[in-house]
Design a binder for these strands. Structure first.
Length: 201
DNA sequence: AGACTGATATTCT
DNA sequence: GAATATCAGTCTA
């Protein structure tokens, strides 16, 4: 109940302002926040921004059955199947429809034993180091597509005071490779991959 | 360390 | 039919 986020169907809620911005700003803003699903999750250490005018975005060619949530309300989840087997979690944002931030990695902080069971491995570093791994660890599936981040089972709240943000090119793309819209918590051991350079925050 | 491979949904050509 | 916002396993070095 005492979530940082209100229900984003209320247009005056603070999180609606938080997410009604360019996805690159939102991606940067999310680094360091604690994201949980039914109390299981951790600190966001890696994100990527996707804008509807960006050729790498699922929304670039317009609305389809899969990406419908990207055209819905800001602050809600967009979940899609990747390479036919993994789930990937995004948060819809932007000041126009069709933008989102992909959550790429978490530093596990809550429900670690349950995450180990779901992932079938012990190594803390690999529990949530990647968009597919993170969804498996948190139990995110298509059932979460379109749900608001500001209400159960989701929770999202700030956790850090001062930290440095790393910036670099997005991963696994063949289009718009040069657009540096990948953000990370500098020096984190829980990234899916290291960053080439670091800038201050 | 890096290279290859398989699993296989969804979209686009 | 080919490509993709992936991961784990299994090779070779």
């Amino acid at each position: 109940m005492t979530s940082f986020l209100a229900d984003s169907s209320d247009p005056s809620a603070p999180d609606v302002k938080l997410f009604t911005r360019h996805p690159a700003e939102v991606a940067r803003e999310l680094i360091g926040m604690i994201l949980t699903v039914d109390g299981v999750g951790g600190r966001v250490v890696e994100t990527e921004a996707y804008h509807h005018e960006d050729p790498a975005s699922h929304a670039y060619n317009g609305q389809t059955a899969r990406n419908g949530a990207m055209f819905g309300p800001v602050g809600h989840a967009y979940v899609y199947r990747s390479y036919g087997l993994h789930w990937c979690l995004n948060i819809v944002c932007g000041d126009t429809p069709g933008s989102a931030v992909l959550i790429r990695a978490l530093e596990p902080t809550a429900g670690i034993e349950l995450m180990r069971e779901r992932r079938g491995m012990e190594a803390l570093r690999l529990l949530c180091a990647g968009p597919g791994r993170l969804c498996q660890a948190l139990g995110v599936t298509l059932a979460h597509d379109g749900l608001p981040l500001g209400a159960a089972p989701f929770a999202l709240e700030p956790s850090l005071q001062d930290w440095e943000i790393a910036v670099g090119p997005r991963i696994g793309l063949t289009k718009a490779i040069q657009t540096p819209w990948r953000y990370g918590l500098a020096g984190s051991k829980f990234l899916s991959r290291p960053f080439p350079k670091v800038v201050a925050s």
